[in-house]
Amino acid sequence: MVRELEEVNGIVFKRQKYHEADLLAKIMTEKNGIITLLARGALKAKSKLGASLLNFSYGTYVIYSSGHGLSTLRTFKNVKQFDGIYDDLIKNAYASFVLDLIDHAFIEYQNLGKYYNLANFALQKINSGTDPEMITQIVQMQLLAAYGVEPELRSCVICGEKQGEFDYSIRKGGILCSKHFYADPSRLHLKPKETAVLRTIFLLPFNRLGDIKINSATKKATRRAIDRIYQETIDLNLKTKKFLDELKLTD
C-alpha cells in the first residue's frame, strides 16, 4: 500500500478517542471528500495534535493517505475554529446537523464538489450569527440532489407553467400550478409564499441566500415541509436531528 504525504484543507466535524492516547477524527476536505484521520498520541499532554482536531476546527492538515481507509495526521497549519459555533449550544446543534446531512450523502473519499463550499458557507453564516434555522433549510434543499432526489421546482411538473400560484407535491416530485392541484390531494397545501421560499432556496446559488429573511410563521411552515420531503423521500434517521427536536428548536 503506497501512502503519500499531502496537504488537505478541511473542516473537522466528528472525533472520538481511539486506544489509550490516539484520536480518530472525521474531516470534510475540499478535494479528498470526507476522510477519517488517525492522530497518534493526540491525547497526550505534550501533543498539539488534539487541539487541531476539536470539532468545528478548520485549516490545512498534513496527512499520510493511500486514498482509502484511515489516513494518518502528521501535522497541521493555520488551524482555526468556528468559536461562535463551538461555544453556543444552539449554533452547535444546527451546525452538527448540517455536517451530518452532508456526511450521509457521500461515501469516504468521494469528491464533494460544490457541497464542500456549501458546508463552509453554512458554518461561516451560523458562526457569524445569521439565523441558523434558515441556513439549515437552505442546506437541506440544496442537498437534495446529492441524495438523488432533485425535485422540479422551476415549473409545474404537469404542464410546465412557470407563473402563478404553486404547491409542492412529494408524490409528483415537484411543484404543481393551481390548475393541477387536483392531481395530488395529498400535496403539502402550502401557502403561495411558502412554496415561493422553497423554490428560492432550492434554485438560487447559496452564496446569494445568506441574508434571506422570512417571518416565523413562514419559516415554521417551510421547515415542516422540508422535514416531510426528507422523511418521505430519503428517510434518514440522524441523531443530530433528534437532538434538535429534543431542544424543541424544530417544533
Rank of each mutant, 00 (worst) to 15 (best):
D22C: 02
D22P: 05
D22G: 01
D22T: 05
D22K: 05
D22S: 09
L23D: 02
L23W: 03
L23R: 03
L23Q: 05
L24E: 03
L24A: 07
L24F: 15
L24K: 09
A25Q: 11
A25H: 13
K26V: 12
K26E: 15
K26N: 14
K26P: 03
K26R: 14
K26Y: 13
I27A: 02
I27K: 11
I27W: 09
M28P: 09
M28G: 02
M28D: 03
T29S: 03
T29K: 08
T29C: 01
T29D: 01
E30P: 04
E30N: 07
E30F: 10
K31R: 11
K31G: 04
K31F: 03
K31C: 01
N32H: 14
N32K: 15
N32V: 03
N32Y: 13
N32G: 12
N32E: 14
G33C: 11
G33F: 09
G33R: 11
I34N: 01
I34F: 07
I34R: 06
I34Q: 02
I34C: 03
I34M: 04
I35Q: 04
I35L: 13
I35E: 02
T36F: 10
T36L: 07
T36W: 10
T36E: 10
T36C: 04
T36I: 14
T36H: 07
L37A: 05
L38V: 15
L38Q: 05
A39W: 07
A39T: 12
A39M: 07
A39D: 04
A39C: 10
R40D: 00
R40Q: 05
G41Y: 10
G41C: 05
G41A: 02
G41H: 07
G41Q: 07
A42C: 11
A42L: 10
A42F: 13
L43G: 05
L43N: 12
L43F: 13
L43A: 04
L43C: 10
L43Y: 13
K44G: 02
K44M: 00
A45R: 15
A45Y: 12
K46I: 05
K46G: 00
K46F: 05
S47W: 04
S47Y: 04
S47Q: 02
S47L: 02
K48H: 11
K48S: 08
K48E: 06
L49Q: 03
L49N: 01
L49A: 01
L49Y: 06
L49W: 06
L49M: 07
L49K: 14
L49H: 03
L49E: 00
G50N: 12
G50T: 14
G50H: 12
G50I: 14
A51H: 04
A51T: 06
A51K: 08
A51I: 05
A51C: 00
A51E: 06
S52G: 09
S52T: 15
S52D: 08
L53Q: 06
L53R: 07
L54Y: 13
L54Q: 15
N55I: 15
N55D: 10
N55R: 15
F56M: 11
F56T: 06
S57V: 03
S57I: 04
S57K: 11
S57D: 04
S57Q: 09
Y58G: 00
G59S: 11
G59H: 13
G59F: 12
